[in-house]
Design a binder for these strands. Structure first.
Lengths: 188, 188
DNA sequence: AGTTCTAGCGGAACACGTTCCGCTTACCAC
DNA sequence: GTGGTAAGCGGAACGTGTTCCGCTAGAACT
Protein backbone atom coordinates (compact mmCIF):
# COMPACT_ATOMS: atom_id res chain seq x y z
CA UNK A 1 0.00 0.00 0.00
CA UNK A 2 2.68 2.56 0.86
CA UNK A 3 4.57 1.66 -2.34
CA UNK A 4 7.44 3.88 -3.37
CA UNK A 5 6.21 7.46 -3.12
CA UNK A 6 7.77 8.93 -6.21
CA UNK A 7 9.88 12.00 -5.54
CA UNK A 8 8.43 15.46 -6.26
CA UNK A 9 9.26 16.58 -9.74
CA UNK A 10 12.09 19.08 -9.99
CA UNK A 11 10.14 21.50 -12.17
CA UNK A 12 7.33 21.49 -9.63
CA UNK A 13 9.75 22.52 -6.89
CA UNK A 14 11.21 25.25 -9.07
CA UNK A 15 7.79 26.58 -9.97
CA UNK A 16 6.76 26.65 -6.35
CA UNK A 17 9.87 28.57 -5.35
CA UNK A 18 9.44 31.02 -8.19
CA UNK A 19 5.77 31.61 -7.31
CA UNK A 20 6.69 32.29 -3.71
CA UNK A 21 9.39 34.74 -4.68
CA UNK A 22 7.12 36.61 -7.08
CA UNK A 23 4.21 36.62 -4.61
CA UNK A 24 6.33 38.08 -1.81
CA UNK A 25 7.57 40.86 -4.08
CA UNK A 26 4.19 41.62 -5.64
CA UNK A 27 2.34 41.58 -2.32
CA UNK A 28 4.87 44.04 -0.91
CA UNK A 29 4.59 46.30 -3.94
CA UNK A 30 0.89 46.25 -4.65
CA UNK A 31 -0.93 44.77 -1.69
CA UNK A 32 -2.58 41.43 -1.10
CA UNK A 33 -5.37 41.71 -3.61
CA UNK A 34 -3.21 41.41 -6.70
CA UNK A 35 -4.77 39.31 -9.42
CA UNK A 36 -3.70 35.66 -9.17
CA UNK A 37 -3.28 35.62 -12.93
CA UNK A 38 -0.68 38.40 -12.68
CA UNK A 39 1.39 36.48 -10.15
CA UNK A 40 1.18 33.30 -12.19
CA UNK A 41 2.18 35.12 -15.36
CA UNK A 42 5.18 36.83 -13.76
CA UNK A 43 6.32 33.48 -12.46
CA UNK A 44 5.96 32.08 -15.96
CA UNK A 45 3.33 29.46 -15.08
CA UNK A 46 -0.38 29.03 -15.67
CA UNK A 47 -2.98 29.92 -13.06
CA UNK A 48 -3.68 26.23 -12.58
CA UNK A 49 -0.15 25.76 -11.28
CA UNK A 50 -0.55 28.62 -8.84
CA UNK A 51 -3.76 27.17 -7.45
CA UNK A 52 -2.33 23.67 -7.21
CA UNK A 53 0.56 24.81 -5.04
CA UNK A 54 -1.48 27.28 -3.02
CA UNK A 55 -5.15 26.27 -3.03
CA UNK A 56 -6.32 29.47 -1.35
CA UNK A 57 -5.15 33.03 -1.28
CA UNK A 58 -4.51 32.51 2.41
CA UNK A 59 -2.13 29.65 1.80
CA UNK A 60 -0.11 31.82 -0.55
CA UNK A 61 -0.06 34.78 1.81
CA UNK A 62 0.98 32.55 4.66
CA UNK A 63 3.83 31.02 2.69
CA UNK A 64 4.97 34.36 1.30
CA UNK A 65 5.29 36.00 4.71
CA UNK A 66 6.42 32.98 6.69
CA UNK A 67 10.12 33.77 6.52
CA UNK A 68 9.88 37.38 7.60
CA UNK A 69 7.41 36.44 10.30
CA UNK A 70 9.90 33.97 11.70
CA UNK A 71 12.49 36.72 12.00
CA UNK A 72 10.12 38.96 13.93
CA UNK A 73 9.10 36.18 16.28
CA UNK A 74 12.71 35.20 16.92
CA UNK A 75 13.36 38.76 18.04
CA UNK A 76 11.09 38.17 21.03
CA UNK A 77 13.44 35.59 22.50
CA UNK A 78 16.44 37.78 21.84
CA UNK A 79 14.88 40.90 23.39
CA UNK A 80 14.05 38.98 26.55
CA UNK A 81 17.70 38.14 27.12
CA UNK A 82 18.80 41.74 26.79
CA UNK A 83 16.05 43.71 28.55
CA UNK A 84 13.75 43.49 31.56
CA UNK A 85 10.59 41.61 30.58
CA UNK A 86 8.16 44.52 30.49
CA UNK A 87 10.59 46.58 28.48
CA UNK A 88 11.23 43.69 26.10
CA UNK A 89 7.49 43.28 25.62
CA UNK A 90 7.00 46.92 24.81
CA UNK A 91 9.93 46.91 22.42
CA UNK A 92 8.71 43.82 20.63
CA UNK A 93 5.20 45.18 20.25
CA UNK A 94 6.55 48.39 18.81
CA UNK A 95 8.79 46.40 16.53
CA UNK A 96 5.79 44.36 15.48
CA UNK A 97 3.83 47.48 14.61
CA UNK A 98 6.78 48.92 12.69
CA UNK A 99 6.94 45.68 10.79
CA UNK A 100 3.22 45.86 10.12
CA UNK A 101 3.51 49.39 8.75
CA UNK A 102 6.71 48.76 6.81
CA UNK A 103 5.25 47.28 3.68
CA UNK A 104 2.01 47.43 1.78
CA UNK A 105 -0.10 44.41 2.50
CA UNK A 106 1.87 43.47 5.55
CA UNK A 107 -0.65 44.62 8.12
CA UNK A 108 -3.41 43.00 6.15
CA UNK A 109 -1.46 39.76 6.08
CA UNK A 110 -0.73 39.85 9.80
CA UNK A 111 -4.33 40.42 10.57
CA UNK A 112 -5.43 37.61 8.35
CA UNK A 113 -2.99 35.33 10.13
CA UNK A 114 -4.05 36.39 13.59
CA UNK A 115 -7.77 36.74 13.25
CA UNK A 116 -8.54 33.83 11.03
CA UNK A 117 -9.16 30.36 12.31
CA UNK A 118 -8.43 29.02 8.89
CA UNK A 119 -6.18 26.05 8.47
CA UNK A 120 -3.23 27.30 6.41
CA UNK A 121 -2.50 29.92 9.04
CA UNK A 122 -2.24 27.74 12.13
CA UNK A 123 1.53 27.39 11.94
CA UNK A 124 2.18 31.09 11.55
CA UNK A 125 -0.30 31.79 14.26
CA UNK A 126 1.50 29.39 16.59
CA UNK A 127 4.73 31.20 15.83
CA UNK A 128 3.23 34.48 16.97
CA UNK A 129 1.54 32.99 20.01
CA UNK A 130 4.87 31.48 20.98
CA UNK A 131 6.61 34.84 20.77
CA UNK A 132 3.97 36.50 22.94
CA UNK A 133 4.09 33.60 25.40
CA UNK A 134 7.85 34.01 25.72
CA UNK A 135 7.45 37.66 26.60
CA UNK A 136 4.55 37.13 29.00
CA UNK A 137 6.42 34.24 30.62
CA UNK A 138 9.46 36.38 31.28
CA UNK A 139 7.20 39.07 32.67
CA UNK A 140 5.55 36.59 34.99
CA UNK A 141 8.93 35.46 36.27
CA UNK A 142 10.23 38.89 37.21
CA UNK A 143 6.74 39.95 38.34
CA UNK A 144 6.44 42.93 36.05
CA UNK A 145 3.54 41.63 34.00
CA UNK A 146 0.22 40.24 35.13
CA UNK A 147 -0.20 36.51 34.86
CA UNK A 148 -3.91 36.22 34.27
CA UNK A 149 -3.85 37.09 30.60
CA UNK A 150 -3.59 34.51 27.83
CA UNK A 151 -1.10 34.93 25.00
CA UNK A 152 -3.89 34.38 22.51
CA UNK A 153 -5.81 37.31 23.95
CA UNK A 154 -2.83 39.63 23.71
CA UNK A 155 -2.15 38.47 20.20
CA UNK A 156 -5.73 39.15 19.22
CA UNK A 157 -5.55 42.71 20.48
CA UNK A 158 -2.29 43.20 18.63
CA UNK A 159 -4.09 41.98 15.57
CA UNK A 160 -6.72 44.64 16.16
CA UNK A 161 -4.00 47.24 16.39
CA UNK A 162 -2.30 45.97 13.26
CA UNK A 163 -5.66 46.11 11.53
CA UNK A 164 -6.06 49.71 12.56
CA UNK A 165 -2.79 50.88 11.07
CA UNK A 166 -4.13 50.02 7.67
CA UNK A 167 -6.32 53.09 7.78
CA UNK A 168 -5.18 54.91 10.90
CA UNK A 169 -1.83 56.52 11.61
CA UNK A 170 1.32 55.01 13.02
CA UNK A 171 0.97 57.37 15.98
CA UNK A 172 -2.42 55.94 16.79
CA UNK A 173 -0.97 52.46 16.65
CA UNK A 174 1.73 53.56 19.08
CA UNK A 175 -0.87 54.92 21.50
CA UNK A 176 -2.79 51.66 21.33
CA UNK A 177 0.36 49.66 22.10
CA UNK A 178 0.97 51.91 25.11
CA UNK A 179 -2.58 51.35 26.27
CA UNK A 180 -2.22 47.61 25.92
CA UNK A 181 1.07 47.68 27.81
CA UNK A 182 -0.56 49.65 30.59
CA UNK A 183 -3.15 46.95 30.87
CA UNK A 184 -0.53 44.23 30.93
CA UNK A 185 1.84 45.72 33.50
CA UNK A 186 0.81 45.34 37.09
CA UNK A 187 -0.69 48.30 38.92
CA UNK A 188 2.07 48.44 41.48
CA UNK B 1 -28.81 77.03 -11.31
CA UNK B 2 -30.71 75.49 -8.39
CA UNK B 3 -33.82 74.99 -10.55
CA UNK B 4 -36.60 72.85 -9.14
CA UNK B 5 -35.05 69.57 -8.04
CA UNK B 6 -37.69 67.10 -9.10
CA UNK B 7 -38.99 64.98 -6.25
CA UNK B 8 -37.71 61.41 -5.88
CA UNK B 9 -39.93 58.90 -7.61
CA UNK B 10 -42.25 56.99 -5.31
CA UNK B 11 -41.31 53.57 -6.69
CA UNK B 12 -37.64 54.38 -6.11
CA UNK B 13 -38.33 55.06 -2.44
CA UNK B 14 -40.34 51.87 -2.12
CA UNK B 15 -37.63 49.83 -3.79
CA UNK B 16 -34.99 51.29 -1.54
CA UNK B 17 -37.01 50.50 1.57
CA UNK B 18 -37.73 46.97 0.40
CA UNK B 19 -34.05 46.34 -0.40
CA UNK B 20 -33.04 47.53 3.04
CA UNK B 21 -35.60 45.32 4.73
CA UNK B 22 -34.56 42.26 2.74
CA UNK B 23 -30.86 42.97 3.22
CA UNK B 24 -31.19 43.29 6.99
CA UNK B 25 -33.04 39.99 7.19
CA UNK B 26 -30.77 38.10 4.79
CA UNK B 27 -27.57 39.42 6.38
CA UNK B 28 -28.81 38.28 9.79
CA UNK B 29 -29.77 34.86 8.47
CA UNK B 30 -26.88 34.06 6.17
CA UNK B 31 -24.06 36.48 6.82
CA UNK B 32 -22.71 39.40 4.89
CA UNK B 33 -21.46 37.60 1.83
CA UNK B 34 -24.86 36.77 0.40
CA UNK B 35 -25.06 37.12 -3.36
CA UNK B 36 -26.27 40.59 -4.37
CA UNK B 37 -28.44 38.96 -7.01
CA UNK B 38 -30.28 37.00 -4.30
CA UNK B 39 -31.07 40.14 -2.33
CA UNK B 40 -32.22 41.97 -5.44
CA UNK B 41 -34.43 39.07 -6.49
CA UNK B 42 -36.06 38.74 -3.08
CA UNK B 43 -36.80 42.43 -3.13
CA UNK B 44 -38.32 42.04 -6.56
CA UNK B 45 -35.90 44.33 -8.37
CA UNK B 46 -33.00 43.90 -10.78
CA UNK B 47 -29.39 43.94 -9.63
CA UNK B 48 -28.95 47.28 -11.33
CA UNK B 49 -31.42 48.82 -8.91
CA UNK B 50 -29.60 47.36 -5.94
CA UNK B 51 -26.29 48.80 -7.11
CA UNK B 52 -27.78 52.19 -7.87
CA UNK B 53 -29.15 52.59 -4.35
CA UNK B 54 -26.13 51.04 -2.67
CA UNK B 55 -23.07 51.38 -4.89
CA UNK B 56 -20.88 49.20 -2.70
CA UNK B 57 -21.47 46.29 -0.41
CA UNK B 58 -20.32 48.54 2.40
CA UNK B 59 -23.01 51.11 1.72
CA UNK B 60 -25.66 48.41 1.94
CA UNK B 61 -24.25 46.94 5.13
CA UNK B 62 -24.04 50.36 6.68
CA UNK B 63 -27.63 51.19 5.82
CA UNK B 64 -28.92 47.78 6.90
CA UNK B 65 -27.38 48.00 10.36
CA UNK B 66 -27.78 51.71 10.93
CA UNK B 67 -31.01 51.47 12.91
CA UNK B 68 -29.83 48.79 15.31
CA UNK B 69 -26.52 50.56 15.72
CA UNK B 70 -28.34 53.73 16.73
CA UNK B 71 -30.12 51.82 19.50
CA UNK B 72 -26.86 50.46 20.87
CA UNK B 73 -25.20 53.85 20.81
CA UNK B 74 -28.16 55.50 22.50
CA UNK B 75 -27.78 53.02 25.34
CA UNK B 76 -24.45 54.63 26.20
CA UNK B 77 -26.12 57.89 27.18
CA UNK B 78 -28.77 56.07 29.15
CA UNK B 79 -26.30 53.88 31.04
CA UNK B 80 -24.31 56.94 32.08
CA UNK B 81 -27.33 58.44 33.82
CA UNK B 82 -28.00 55.28 35.82
CA UNK B 83 -24.53 54.04 36.76
CA UNK B 84 -21.13 55.33 37.81
CA UNK B 85 -19.09 56.09 34.70
CA UNK B 86 -16.64 53.20 34.89
CA UNK B 87 -19.45 50.76 35.52
CA UNK B 88 -21.49 52.24 32.66
CA UNK B 89 -18.53 51.87 30.36
CA UNK B 90 -18.01 48.26 31.27
CA UNK B 91 -21.71 47.52 30.85
CA UNK B 92 -21.87 49.19 27.50
CA UNK B 93 -18.83 47.37 26.20
CA UNK B 94 -20.28 44.05 27.30
CA UNK B 95 -23.56 45.01 25.71
CA UNK B 96 -21.69 45.88 22.56
CA UNK B 97 -20.01 42.48 22.46
CA UNK B 98 -23.32 40.73 23.10
CA UNK B 99 -24.77 42.68 20.24
CA UNK B 100 -21.81 41.70 18.07
CA UNK B 101 -22.30 38.03 18.85
CA UNK B 102 -26.09 38.08 18.61
CA UNK B 103 -26.49 37.68 14.90
CA UNK B 104 -24.57 36.21 12.04
CA UNK B 105 -22.70 38.87 10.15
CA UNK B 106 -23.09 41.41 12.92
CA UNK B 107 -19.54 41.25 14.17
CA UNK B 108 -18.25 41.37 10.64
CA UNK B 109 -20.37 44.42 9.97
CA UNK B 110 -19.24 46.19 13.12
CA UNK B 111 -15.66 45.57 12.27
CA UNK B 112 -16.11 46.83 8.76
CA UNK B 113 -17.66 50.00 10.14
CA UNK B 114 -14.98 50.57 12.73
CA UNK B 115 -11.84 49.58 10.94
CA UNK B 116 -12.54 50.92 7.51
CA UNK B 117 -11.78 54.46 6.51
CA UNK B 118 -14.24 54.12 3.68
CA UNK B 119 -16.73 56.84 3.01
CA UNK B 120 -20.14 55.21 3.45
CA UNK B 121 -19.25 54.28 7.01
CA UNK B 122 -18.27 57.67 8.37
CA UNK B 123 -21.71 58.41 9.82
CA UNK B 124 -22.02 55.09 11.62
CA UNK B 125 -18.48 55.44 12.81
CA UNK B 126 -19.24 58.89 14.21
CA UNK B 127 -22.22 57.38 16.03
CA UNK B 128 -19.97 54.87 17.74
CA UNK B 129 -17.23 57.38 18.49
CA UNK B 130 -19.87 59.60 20.06
CA UNK B 131 -21.08 56.81 22.32
CA UNK B 132 -17.55 56.05 23.48
CA UNK B 133 -16.85 59.74 23.98
CA UNK B 134 -19.93 60.05 26.19
CA UNK B 135 -18.71 57.23 28.40
CA UNK B 136 -15.12 58.44 28.55
CA UNK B 137 -16.34 61.98 29.24
CA UNK B 138 -18.41 60.82 32.19
CA UNK B 139 -15.45 58.84 33.46
CA UNK B 140 -13.21 61.87 33.21
CA UNK B 141 -15.71 63.93 35.22
CA UNK B 142 -15.97 61.57 38.14
CA UNK B 143 -12.28 60.70 37.87
CA UNK B 144 -12.73 56.98 37.44
CA UNK B 145 -11.32 56.77 33.94
CA UNK B 146 -8.06 58.08 32.55
CA UNK B 147 -8.30 61.17 30.40
CA UNK B 148 -5.36 60.64 28.07
CA UNK B 149 -7.06 58.15 25.78
CA UNK B 150 -8.90 59.10 22.60
CA UNK B 151 -12.35 57.72 21.88
CA UNK B 152 -11.17 56.65 18.44
CA UNK B 153 -8.45 54.53 20.01
CA UNK B 154 -10.87 52.78 22.34
CA UNK B 155 -13.29 52.21 19.51
CA UNK B 156 -10.54 50.70 17.42
CA UNK B 157 -9.65 48.23 20.13
CA UNK B 158 -13.30 47.34 20.53
CA UNK B 159 -13.31 46.72 16.82
CA UNK B 160 -10.42 44.34 17.30
CA UNK B 161 -12.37 42.52 19.97
CA UNK B 162 -15.49 42.38 17.83
CA UNK B 163 -13.33 41.00 15.06
CA UNK B 164 -12.05 38.29 17.34
CA UNK B 165 -15.47 36.97 18.27
CA UNK B 166 -15.93 35.91 14.71
CA UNK B 167 -13.55 33.04 15.27
CA UNK B 168 -12.89 33.08 18.99
CA UNK B 169 -15.29 32.48 21.83
CA UNK B 170 -17.57 34.86 23.63
CA UNK B 171 -15.58 34.19 26.81
CA UNK B 172 -12.42 35.35 25.13
CA UNK B 173 -14.18 38.52 24.04
CA UNK B 174 -15.25 39.06 27.66
CA UNK B 175 -11.67 38.70 28.85
CA UNK B 176 -10.51 41.20 26.28
CA UNK B 177 -13.13 43.71 27.41
CA UNK B 178 -11.96 43.27 30.99
CA UNK B 179 -8.39 43.84 29.89
CA UNK B 180 -9.35 46.99 28.04
CA UNK B 181 -11.32 48.25 31.04
CA UNK B 182 -8.34 47.65 33.27
CA UNK B 183 -6.28 49.79 30.99
CA UNK B 184 -8.89 52.53 30.98
CA UNK B 185 -9.52 52.77 34.70
CA UNK B 186 -6.90 54.69 36.57
CA UNK B 187 -4.33 52.83 38.63
CA UNK B 188 -5.45 54.52 41.82
C1' DA C 1 -56.31 64.36 -19.17
C1' DG C 2 -52.43 64.93 -22.26
C1' DT C 3 -47.58 65.87 -23.14
C1' DT C 4 -42.85 66.27 -22.04
C1' DC C 5 -38.92 65.01 -19.72
C1' DT C 6 -35.74 62.47 -17.21
C1' DA C 7 -35.00 59.55 -12.86
C1' DG C 8 -34.96 55.17 -12.41
C1' DC C 9 -35.45 50.35 -14.06
C1' DG C 10 -33.92 45.51 -15.53
C1' DG C 11 -31.02 42.42 -17.16
C1' DA C 12 -27.53 41.65 -20.73
C1' DA C 13 -22.60 42.31 -21.13
C1' DC C 14 -18.32 42.38 -19.04
C1' DA C 15 -14.44 41.29 -15.77
C1' DC C 16 -12.28 38.46 -12.75
C1' DG C 17 -11.49 34.50 -9.43
C1' DT C 18 -11.59 29.54 -9.33
C1' DT C 19 -12.07 24.86 -11.07
C1' DC C 20 -11.37 21.19 -14.24
C1' DC C 21 -9.36 18.17 -17.61
C1' DG C 22 -6.65 16.48 -21.66
C1' DC C 23 -1.83 16.83 -22.73
C1' DT C 24 3.10 17.01 -21.47
C1' DT C 25 7.22 15.54 -19.39
C1' DA C 26 10.17 14.26 -15.41
C1' DC C 27 10.98 10.12 -12.91
C1' DC C 28 11.94 5.30 -12.47
C1' DA C 29 12.75 0.39 -13.88
C1' DC C 30 14.80 -2.40 -17.06
C1' DG D 1 18.78 4.40 -23.89
C1' DT D 2 13.93 3.24 -23.99
C1' DG D 3 9.11 2.67 -22.35
C1' DG D 4 5.60 2.99 -18.93
C1' DT D 5 3.42 5.82 -15.58
C1' DA D 6 1.33 9.36 -13.20
C1' DA D 7 2.66 14.01 -11.27
C1' DG D 8 2.26 18.19 -12.93
C1' DC D 9 1.09 21.64 -16.40
C1' DG D 10 -1.65 25.35 -18.97
C1' DG D 11 -5.44 27.59 -20.19
C1' DA D 12 -10.26 27.03 -21.54
C1' DA D 13 -14.67 26.82 -19.22
C1' DC D 14 -17.54 28.11 -15.49
C1' DG D 15 -19.66 30.92 -11.81
C1' DT D 16 -20.17 35.45 -9.53
C1' DG D 17 -19.75 40.31 -8.70
C1' DT D 18 -20.13 44.80 -11.09
C1' DT D 19 -21.07 48.00 -14.81
C1' DC D 20 -23.63 49.82 -18.60
C1' DC D 21 -27.34 51.26 -21.52
C1' DG D 22 -31.85 51.28 -24.11
C1' DC D 23 -36.38 51.42 -22.39
C1' DT D 24 -40.20 52.37 -18.87
C1' DA D 25 -43.04 55.01 -16.18
C1' DG D 26 -43.56 58.61 -12.47
C1' DA D 27 -43.40 63.82 -11.92
C1' DA D 28 -44.29 68.46 -13.46
C1' DC D 29 -46.74 71.65 -16.15
C1' DT D 30 -50.65 73.17 -19.21
Amino acid sequence: MPATPRRTRSDALENRARLLEVAARVFAEQGLDTAPAAIAKQAGVGVGTLYRHFPTREALVDAAYRHQLTLVCDQAAELVTRHPAAEATRLWMTHFIDYATAKTGMSEALNAIIASGVDPFVDSRALLTGAVATLLGAGAEDGSVRTDVASEDVLLLMGGIAYSVQHGTKEQAGRLVDLLMDALTKNT
